[in-house]
């Protein structure tokens, strides 16, 4: 039988992979958005695993809402990214430093 700790450790590994992706990728913001998606899926796996093992459906409802918010976030993020590319001609993280003091 697969225990709850297996699922939790798997999702923490995926979470850290997403985190490393955010650290490592300085080239484009699209990859950063994808890493955020990966982190959200890891968190959702946590919710689903606890929902299954505790016999409580509220966790799955939360995953449903997280999916909704993530879809909205991606839509707005990609719109901002398109604007950034139109104004700067690049989507590198190093180019987007106009807020730097």
């Amino acid at each position: 039988m697969v225990s709850l700790s297996d699922y939790l450790i798997l999702s923490s590994v995926i979470f850290c992979i997403g985190l490393v992706g955010i650290f490592v990728n300085r080239a484009n913001i699209i990859t950063l958005l994808m890493c955020i998606e990966l982190i959200l899926v890891a968190v959702n796996t946590n919710f689903v695993a606890f929902s299954h093992f505790l016999g409580n459906e509220a966790g799955q409802i939360f995953v449903f809402f997280i999916l909704t918010v993530a879809a909205a976030e991606v839509a707005i993020g990609l719109a901002i990214l398109t604007l950034l590319f139109r104004n700067r001609g690049s989507i590198s993280v190093d180019v987007t430093n106009s807020l730097k003091g």
Partner: peptide
């Protein structure tokens, strides 16, 4: 431009990730 700065933060990121996974 994608091939340029890629591995600058890789060692630090890997160390942080491994520590987080170990703690978790």
């Amino acid at each position: 431009t994608l091939r340029a700065k890629f591995t600058g933060y890789l060692p630090l990121g890997l160390i942080v990730a491994v520590i987080i996974v170990a703690e978790m």
